[in-house]
Amino acid sequence: MSWISNTFSSSIGRKIVMAATGLFLCSFLVVHLAGNFQLFKNDGGLAFNAYSEFMSHNTIIRILEIGLVAGFGFHIYEGLTLALKNKAARGTNYVSDHIEQNSPWHARSMAVLGSIVLFFLIVHLYNFFGTLRFGEPIKDSQGNENAYALVVDAFHNPLYVALYVLAQLALLYHLLHGFQSAFQTLGLTHRKYTPAVKLLGIVFSVVVCAGFASMPIYFYFFN
Rank of each mutant, 00 (worst) to 15 (best):
L118E: 00
F119P: 07
L125A: 08
L125G: 01
N127E: 07
F128E: 04
F128L: 10
F129Q: 14
G130C: 12
G130Q: 09
T131G: 12
L132P: 12
R133D: 13
R133I: 14
F134G: 08
E136A: 14
S141K: 12
S141I: 15
Q142R: 14
Q142K: 07
G143I: 06
N144L: 08
E145L: 15
A147N: 06
A147M: 05
A147R: 05
A147Q: 04
Y148C: 02
Y148E: 03
Y148R: 07
Y148L: 02
A149M: 10
A149I: 11
V151T: 04
V151E: 01
V152K: 11
V152G: 04
A154K: 02
F155D: 08
L159A: 14
A162Y: 11
A162V: 06
L163G: 08
V165D: 02
V165H: 05
L166Q: 06
L166R: 06
Q168E: 00
Q168F: 02
H177N: 14
G178W: 02
F179E: 01
A182Q: 04
Q184Y: 10
T185L: 04
L188V: 01
H190I: 03
H190Q: 06
H190N: 12
R191M: 12
K192Y: 08
T194P: 03
V197N: 01
V197A: 07
L199V: 09
L200T: 03
G201L: 06
